[in-house]
Write a protein that binds this DNA or RNA. Structure first.
Lengths: 197, 197
DNA sequence: GACGGTGAGACGTTTTCCGTCTTATTGTCT
DNA sequence: AGACAATAAGACGGAAAACGTCTCACCGTC
């Protein structure tokens, strides 16, 4: 069995090619060559070609993003702390993502679409998959979902276009910004600020 | 009359496009769009299309390079100083050229070809055009040409692949490196080390 | 109003890319 | 050894993109 399964190799290659040429200019042959794989193999692993491949790449990057995000906030047991740290960590991760920065600089269109139009629903779905369980001790799902939804949108918006009034990459600034909203919402959910046992 | 003549606008656009997509991936339409010019105009100014256009771009960059180079060594009246400063300034200019660095990183092939294969003869020709007159007071043309030829090749080689033994971007290191060769050559030319009046 | 320069875009051709398929090779398992 | 799965290499036809040329309408200048 191989250490790096074919899919991962190809996705890595696709990412490299994107940084080098931009999504618009990359061809399937470029990716196959960069992955050291024949076109036939690529089409076998990603039937449907470039679209499927890029969907898979985006899916993997979303998963990686939330993997590291959830790892970073592990062990937080206060509701407000948890939300604040999530938003701050997400904002910092977005800012530190050099691949994202490169893409955003060279072809804003496709990145913006991925963050705000076509891609947002899937981001929200993944966010719910990852963050829902984490918020479970504090909120029941029917309240967690709209909160996650809002946090994702707010985080993305302030990342794409920073505000003079708040810096979501700064813990205290983010806390001051988020507290009012969390305070209004907290009484509604009917659970204590500390997690249920 | 326009401030920026069409040619320059288009060459600037081509340069931008190259940095963004790499020479292989750029199309004539990309360049025309980036220049804010119709394809018809582009073909009128550069009959022959992409090849002619890129030749013109390379020619312009060579000229610009030697323009700034000769400006930087202006006023030197000692032969050894002159050669040393030329080599050092050229090396530093190459190292500081961010466009060159970008291209070299993203598509080494075409850049190397431009510096060592197809492009070298033209570099040598331009170098002779610019540096010949400058060396005139010290060397007659039949001795100047082979010297320029060698200096260009050496500078390029040490730029592309730096040596542990000498740093041609450092004045003293370059001087120590060049002096023996210049000393051997000087008696041959039959002219004094100070320029003729 | 004539005129040169330009943008928009139609056109036929050439090149590239796509997605599928076949064949030969390689490495693995039995 | 032989069967088998996975793969590389590349042929193939159709689709899409890029090329280079051309026409025509427009606009500013003379």
């Amino acid at each position: 069995m191989r250490i790096n399964t074919g899919e991962a190799r190809i996705l890595d290659a696709a990412k490299e090619c994107c940084e080098r040429w931009g999504m618009e200019k990359v061809t399937v042959d470029d990716i196959a060559a960069a992955a050291g794989v024949s076109r036939a193999t690529l089409y076998r692993l990603f039937p449907g070609g470039k679209d499927v491949l890029f969907d898979a790449l985006h899916a993997r990057e979303r998963a990686e993003f939330f993997d590291t995000l959830t790892a970073e906030i592990d062990g937080t047991d206060d509701f407000e702390d948890l939300v604040v740290r999530l938003v701050v960590a997400a904002t910092r991760a977005l800012r530190d993502d050099s691949h994202l920065a490169t893409m955003l600089a060279s072809e804003p269109g496709s990145v913006l679409s991925e963050l705000t139009l076509d891609g947002l629903p899937q981001i929200l779905r993944v966010a719910n998959d990852y963050l829902g369980p984490i918020l479970k001790p504090f909120l029941d799902p029917e309240h967690a979902e709209p909160l996650i939804d809002l946090l994702v949108r707010v985080t993305i918006s302030y990342f794409l276009s920073p505000s003079d009034h708040v810096d979501l990459g700064d813990t205290e600034s983010a806390r001051a910004f988020l507290r009012p909203g969390l305070a209004v919402m907290s009484p509604v959910d009917g659970r204590p600020n500390q997690p249920n046992p």
